[in-house]
Every structure is written in C-alpha cells, then in structure tokens.
Design a protein around this nucleic acid. Structure first.
Lengths: 314, 314
DNA sequence: TATGGTATGTAGCGATACTACATGGAGGGG
DNA sequence: CCCCTCCATGTAGTATCGCTACATACCATA
C-alpha cells in the first residue's frame, strides 16, 4: 500500500509495466508540452515507432529537447531507447484496455484484438509472477504423496488440465469436478498431500471451503489466483498470476490462460527434478502415444510428426 | 508445397515469421561476412538491441556497409528497422526452439522460458490464423441450431472450455468427454447443427470418426487443428492455429493455449452479432454471477471486483 | 594466367540524437 | 504593482549515426 502511493507520487517507472501503461499513468504528472507529445504517441502508437525525433517534435508542435525530456519522464534512456521500448510494447499488441472490442469489428480485427489482449495479459503474468513462490510450489509438489487440484468454472478447466499432466508430476493426481467430491478428497488428505486450489478472484466460496478442509487435514495448500485474496491468504504457498481485468462483457477471460501456463511451469519444474528413470518413462510414453495417434495416417506425414509428441494431447 | 520451396530458394522473407526465425533460416544463404554478423546477433539477441551499427560492425569484425547488407538480406529496411524488429521479436521472448529447457534452470528461468515459449507460440498463431476461415466459422455458428464440441486429451480441455461459453454462443452446446457419447451426438446432428472438431495433430482417429459421422448426418463441421491435416481436409471450415512444435519432453504443449484463444475469438464474434436483448441477458448473468461469487467477502473487496465479472469463471 | 563477377571495404555526406545555454512566462514577496 | 525567482520551453551547436557511391580485393572459371 505504502509502496503504491510512493510510486504514484514519485512517478517512478516500474519495470513490470509496459511503456504505454507508464505513459498513460504518468500523463497527468507531465508538463504541458510533454503531454502533447504523449497525446501524439498514444493516439497512434503503431505509427509512432517509425517517427524520427524531429518528426515527433513537429507532430506535437514542440521542440526536440521537449521530446527528449518526455522520453526521460516516462523512464527511457533516450529517444532510441524510447523507440525500442515502444516497439516491444507494440509487439505484444495493444490490450483491449486500450482498444476496445466493438460490434463493428471485422473478424480479422476481432481475432487480432483478442490475441493481442491475451498475449499482453500473459506478458503481465510473466512479469509479476513471484519466482520464489514458484520455487516453493515445485519443491512442495516434489515431496507430495498425492495431489488434488480444485477449481470451478474456468478454473475447473485449469484443474482438469493439471490433472492431465499427472505423468509429469509422477504421483497420483485427482481433479474431481463435483464440489462434494472435492470436499471429500480434501478432507481425506494426509500430511504429505498437496492441494492446488485455483480461483481467479480468490473469493469463490466453494473453493475456499475445500482449501480450508485440505489445510485442516494437514495438507499443504498451494493457491493459484489472479490477485492477492482470501484464498491466497489462506494458502501455504500463494501463486499469483496477474492478468488484465475483464473490463466488459466481450473481453474474454485471460486468467485461465495464465493459469494454464503456470501449471505448465509447475509440471515441467517437477518433471525436470525427478529421477532420470522417471524422465525416460515419460519420454517413452509420449513417443508411443504419438505413434499411436499417427496410426491412421502414418503414411501421410508420419515422419514429420513422429518427432513431435506432446503431453497427453490430441 | 511449391510455395514453400519457392520461399526457401529466393530466401524471401515472410511477414508471418519473426526476425530471429528469418535470420536462422537465411543463415546458410548469407555471404560469409554477413554470417559473422548473424552469428553475433544470434549469440546474444538481447544485447544486440542496444548495439549501434559501428558497434555491431566491430563486434563482427566487418565493415558497416556489411551490416547494412545483412539487414537488407534478412528483410529489413535498414539498421533502424532491424533494431526495431529485433526488439519486437525479443519482446515476445525467445521460443524454446532457441533456448532449450534444462534441469539446471532455476525456477525463475523455467517460468520465463515457458512463458516466452507460450507467448511466441500465440504470436505465431496470431500471424498465421486465416481471417476468412474465422469469418466463415462465426457466420456458421450464428446460424447453428446446436453446437457440438469434440476433442480428446488436451483438445478435450478446449472442447470443455468452449462448452462453458455457451451463453455467448446462445444455442445449446454440448461437449461430451466419452467417445461413444460424442459419436452418438454427432450421428444425431441435424442440417443446422455445427460440430467443432478439435485436434492439434489433426490425425486423432476418434476425432476423425466423430467428425465424419457429423458430416454424414448433415452437420457443418468446423475443424480446429494445429496444421493442415486429414481433419482439416475433412472439415467444411478449417481453422488452423499454428504453434511451435513441441521439440522434447519438457516442452509444454502450447497448442491448447492457441486453441483456447481461437475459441475465445469465435465465442466473442458470435456474441457480438447476436441481438441486443441477448447481449443484455449475458451481461446481467455475468454481473449476477460476479456478485454471487463475492458473497463471502463483499466487505473485503466487493467494490473492486464487482465491476470485473468474467464468463462463467471463478 | 587472364577475366568476369561477386564479395567486402573505404570515403564522404546528410541527418540524427543529444547537450549546453538562452529565453520566456508564471507565481510569490516586497 | 513591480521585481525577482524558478520552472517550462525553445535555440544553437556538435558528435555521431545511418546510409550511399565508389573502389578494391577475392574467387571461380576458362
């Protein structure tokens, strides 16, 4: 809390933020002519990438040094650095926060916007994910006798996905969809059990109940949420994958995507630290699954795809 | 096929490719001194972003014009453009294709690599997705009397996720997990039914059988695959979301992520074109679901999250 | 070895990003 | 009300950068 206020005051740039976010946030703190520069950039960020300093100065009707000062104000080393950072921000695409979805959009626009939004969201999750928490979670999962994944709705999908990765985790995994089944499983946890409780808001009542039951039964609880919340407070290890908020009806929920990636990280991390024998077994399973899947059409492209098995996928 | 060969010969740069991919692909076709430049860039792409032309020339022990020619050879307008494109490529992160995952990686490295790989993959899907096919798929779904989603393994997860979005689709949706159930549902399809068949490889036998059954029953078949394949050939409308191949055991499968995003695009596209009444109903449902979810802890952060409902998520 | 074409480097120019300094104007105290 | 101070903004100047036209070195073939 204190930290956030401090940031707002000093206008300190946070490396977890993207350049456009920083410009938007700093806008009111900028001097008037710098605001004109910001306006030009925000108005057409894509075009701004190819601006030269003189060009940008002219477009904003200010002098070149003002552009320089603007760059410094938004946390860039210079104009060059500004352009590079802008380019990088743009590579991810504009989150829907900046360009909203409307009924007039063509299918191409729609697809681009949604992909952009998703990628931006994953980028945010990537920047804000706590490496220590991930480390703890992996260690904890490595010592688990059995793992329980719980979640409802979209978070339930993540739980199902995690359960499908059980060969990587190397111990019995379950992910019941039914609340009662989840509760029973949680209650029956032992001290070496690990429960991964998933909820984007971290407020879902049923998930909280199940997580609490697991904790009381002595299990280690790992939470996977989109923000700090009751669930993350309750958990022994809190994984927070921050995404962009879903601002309106048509903004697809990107939280599940980030959750899935975090699960990928956990599963891969655990598998990497298991014994070579286990690794070999996984490898064998994958290659056999792949060739099985090719059964119908080995002649067509068997050679191509034989080398590209994937985890329990189709 | 012919097209691909042509590209390889002329070394023509494809805008659907990222800069680093292009450099790697062009490497053998480059002149010797240009290869030295490429080597420097590939060796440390992140550092290369801040190189000046003179600096890069010195590091590669070549003259500045050689660097220029290198830029032109990899499809850039000039050195400036090269730097921007490089920066954009880097913003997505290096796909695991370039920096593989090893047991020595720390948790932080691991998380970064997997996120990078995922984001790069989504970027690839974004670039290669056929907008026309998306348009057709949306139109077709809008005219559907009912929708059936099918898939196995990771693709089954996508089907489940799609089914959860049925309020957006506005018509009855089902996504049975059992093969027989899927087959039955497909066989019972009517002429206004739409079946979305999901399989990354596009070879999964059961999925092919179900898709074929749906087709015979007169339904429109939309395929969602990772490449052109028997399934996409069979389908009326083929959606192809290309991701990076899963090169080894530890590379997480990113195809499911791309599939989920494509489903987001479809659901959003359909919802956008439905009547305002339908939209209003969806909005109402979402806000009520959100407040329901907050039931436990309204006092804590009810104000914050009341405005951020998400589709049937938790 | 001679000769063609290609690969690479040299020289030079305009433009660029950046710096030091000067000017303008708003706000506060006498 | 005027003057002074300080901050915002612009002007002038410079080193460097990216780029182009031209020259030389290299290699292959005859």
């Amino acid at each position: 809390m204190t930290l956030e206020v401090e940031q707002a005051e000093t206008g300190a740039e946070d490396s977890t933020d993207t350049l456009l976010e920083r410009i938007t946030r700093q806008l009111p703190h900028l001097r008037r002519s710098e605001q004109r520069v910001a306006a030009i950039v925000l108005d057409n960020p894509v075009g701004a990438v190819h601006f030269t300093m003189a060009g940008l100065a002219e477009a904003a009707e200010v002098s070149e040094p003002t552009v320089m000062r603007f760059c410094a104000s938004v946390g860039c080393e210079g104009f060059q650095d500004f352009k590079i950072q802008l380019a990088q921000t743009l590579a991810l695409g504009l989150p829907v926060t900046h360009s909203s979805i409307s009924a007039e959009d063509s299918s191409a626009d729609l697809a681009e916007k949604i992909f952009d939004h998703t990628i931006s969201s994953l980028d945010r999750a990537r920047r804000t994910l706590d490496a220590d928490a991930v480390e703890h979670a992996i260690t904890s999962l490595l010592g688990a006798s059995d793992i329980l994944f719980v979640g409802f709705g979209a978070s339930g999908i993540i739980a199902q996905d995690a359960q499908q990765k059980f060969p990587l985790f190397g111990v019995p995994c379950q992910a019941p969809e039914d609340f009662h089944q989840q509760f029973i499983a949680a209650t029956m946890s032992g001290p070496r059990s690990v429960t991964v409780a998933i909820s984007n808001t971290g407020h879902t009542e049923q998930t909280l109940i199940v997580a609490e039951a697991a904790r009381k039964a002595g299990a280690t609880v790992i939470s996977l949420t989109g923000r700090t919340s009751p669930l993350s407070d309750l958990a022994d290890i809190a994984l927070v994958a921050r995404t962009f908020e879903d601002t309106d009806v048509y903004t697809p929920s990107t939280s599940r995507l980030a959750g899935l990636v975090v699960v990928d990280v956990l599963a891969t991390g655990v598998a990497l630290r298991r014994t070579p024998e286990h690794t070999a077994a996984v490898r064998r399973m994958k290659s056999e699954l792949a060739s099985m899947r090719q059964g119908v059409a080995v002649a067509v492209d068997g050679a191509e795809s034989a080398g590209t098995p994937e985890a329990a996928a189709s």
